[in-house]
Design a protein around this nucleic acid. Structure first.
Lengths: 108, 108
DNA sequence: CCCATACTCAAGCAATCACTTGACTGTTGG
DNA sequence: CCAACAGTCAAGTGATTGCTTGAGTATGGG
């Protein structure tokens, strides 16, 4: 199974590519087929499929094939997971700054 | 210079590695030297330095050398940038769900 | 002055990445 | 039925990653 750490690895890795970010950007505004996703990018359909596979493997996107068309949609919990990690670090940082502030100005 | 898109690429790429996430995790609780950062990880100092270089290149971490010790600290705007992208997508998704909800239940 | 400390530079290596080309499979409108 | 359409499998390639080993270069306490 995919533990939390490994999942974060894959999610951030997936988001580290502009093409893939474009794809999730497109998908937040509604589902799309593979060809639709490929349309906006100047690369082969196969390349787009490979990006899609990365997005699906880390759970950022869910896809389902009906007939001959595969429909893709965002699965938002992946985004939330990454966001949670970041906001956790940020608040850690802010708390530390607060403690420093109290040290410098103990009468607050 | 590093445009916004490229910066995001690098930041997410940097965060896509557990070792590097551990390093920023350590650094949010306060500055540390390279050796201190290396201490907790079972890899060579050189490897840690290379991770540090990645973190510095994307602006997640700032370092400064005084005497023979290089001190590292988090630079929080990088974290904020990544968090902003994620929350932007998430709210995009949520707004879409809201619109769908209104369609299904127009009297709300 | 000298040796341990704290990095730093460079090269090399196996694995992974982001593509490509080419050949194929299943689906569907006419 | 059959052609165009939507997607898939496989293999190859050049670049990048995450390490390693080995050999430096400053600094600074005693």
């Amino acid at each position: 199974m995919l533990d939390h750490r490994d999942r974060l690895d894959r999610i951030f890795q997936a988001l580290a590519d502009g093409t893939r970010r474009d794809m999730v950007e497109r998908l937040v505004s509604g589902p799309a087929s593979v060809s639709e996703l490929a349309g906006s990018h100047s690369m082969t359909l196969q390349a787009v499929m490979q990006h899609l596979k990365v997005l699906e493997a880390c759970g950022l996107v869910r896809t389902e094939k009906v007939g001959r068309v595969r429909t893709c949609a965002v699965q938002p919990d992946g985004l939330r997971l990454a966001e949670a990690w970041l906001s956790g670090r940020r608040t850690g940082w802010e708390n530390r700054l607060d403690r420093l502030g109290e040290l410098l100005e103990p009468d607050s």
